[in-house]
Amino acid sequence: MTSYPNSVELFAGAGGLAMGVERAGFKTTAIIEKDKWACQTLQQNKSFFTATNSNSLEIFHGNIEEFDFSTLTKNVQLVSGGPPCQPFSLGGKHKANSDNRDLFPQAIRAVRELRPQAFIFENVKGLTRSTFSNYFEYIRLQLTFPDIVQKSGEEWFEHLCRLELHQKQSSYDHHSYQVKTQVLNAANYGVPQKRERVFFVGFRSDLNISWSFPSQTHSKYRLILDQTKNGGYWDRHKVPKEQRIYTELSKNNLTNLEKEIDLLPWSTVRDALADLPPPYSRSIKSNVKSNRVTAHFAQPGAKAYKGHTGSPLDEPAKTLKAGVHGVPGGENMLRFHDGQVRYFTVRECARLQTFPDDFEFHGSWTETMRQLGNAVPTELARVIAHSILKKLHILN
């Protein structure tokens, strides 16, 4: 019988990270999420997150601060999640630890109380900015030594100093974790989206595991070559020569091509959406019934303006975003070569995040786009989780 290591997902959203972990070979036993629409999405697609059967998965709707991890009776090998990114995002208020939406302390609590063999946490690249450098190190050290908790009345910077002192004076043991961090671009792993995120990955120190982040498999320079030197990209999509308008990528030199010659080309928006029919109107009900693609309705109102020009058809998409007050005007639009723009449909966004076509989302268009904008691309999650699973299987 196949053995599936148990995983628990925090701050799950629509479940992109959880699905990637599941595809890698883990068994999701519990998901914790506070947004009601995301929870409805998770319930609707419960079968995607269970390696054996949907009855083995519990979905908890509520605030993680109130969650009692002792209620999870199954042994947990992996904890994963993406704590809310607004405190660190470029579009946010940049309050970091003073923002009450910073839930990294709850991620650390989960590690402390569940004692998993490994964990994966994801956040926006903005967390790595120099203005957050002390707090970034604070997060890393708390994940390294989760038992060294903040004392009552102790400021976070004082706690950081105590953690740094502990790191200098103490050897790593079964109460600590070996933690590695790295910013990854999803496009470098076959995702049709230029999405940079920082990942925290840790292994329990007593396991004595040596691990590094997976090497990239896809390359911008290989895409340039595919679009310029040999034309294979255009031939594959049956684009007539007179319509082959080279993208901004092709203006770059190919000096890096030699070292990346064995990699695959970046996947583009055209690659991801090539077999989808044009978006259909909500007013044409017959199309809804006959078309096999769900959530592929056209959304009116897209406009291009300075700084919001949309994602070019023949590059990976710009980073899909959730937005505090709905969907931004640029990142979630498709831009054609003639300058016309339109919003990506929900199904197109799901493809850009590497969700399967039969995955259904709950909530309004804005709520659904928020779920998608906050998600971890499932393929990137799978690559990372699979590299972790290979190391944990050494123990079995």
Rank of each mutant, 00 (worst) to 15 (best):
T2H: 03
S3A: 03
S3R: 07
P5W: 08
G20Y: 02
A24S: 14
D35H: 10
N45W: 00
F49D: 03
F49S: 10
A51H: 07
S54Q: 13
H61E: 15
G62Q: 07
I64F: 10
G81W: 03
G81I: 08
P84C: 02
P87W: 09
L90I: 13
L90M: 08
G91V: 12
H94G: 04
N97E: 15
F104N: 01
A107I: 02
I108S: 05
V111A: 07
V111C: 04
A118G: 05
Y135P: 09
Q142S: 15
T144C: 14
F145I: 03
E155V: 06
W156A: 05
E158H: 12
L165I: 14
Y177W: 12
Q182L: 10
Y189W: 04
G190L: 00
P192Q: 01
Q193D: 02
F199M: 09
W211G: 06
T217H: 04
S219Q: 13
Y221D: 13
L223K: 02
Q227I: 08
N230A: 05
G231L: 15
Y233M: 03
E248C: 06
N252H: 13
N253Y: 03
L257R: 08
E260I: 02
L263F: 12
P265Q: 11
S267M: 11
V269Q: 05
D271C: 13
A272V: 10
A272M: 10
D275V: 13
P277T: 11
P279R: 13
P279Y: 02
Y280F: 15
I284C: 09
N287I: 05
S290T: 14
N291V: 06
V293P: 01
A295P: 00
K303M: 14
A304Q: 11
K306A: 14
K306N: 14
T309I: 15
P312R: 13
L313H: 11
A317N: 07
K318D: 04
T319R: 09
V324C: 02
H325G: 07
G326K: 08
G330V: 14
G330D: 11
R335K: 15
H337V: 11
D338V: 10
G339A: 07
Q340C: 04
T345Q: 00
C349P: 00
C349H: 00
P356C: 00
E360C: 09
W365I: 10
W365R: 15
T366N: 12
Q371V: 00
E379G: 00
V383P: 00
K390L: 12
N396Q: 12
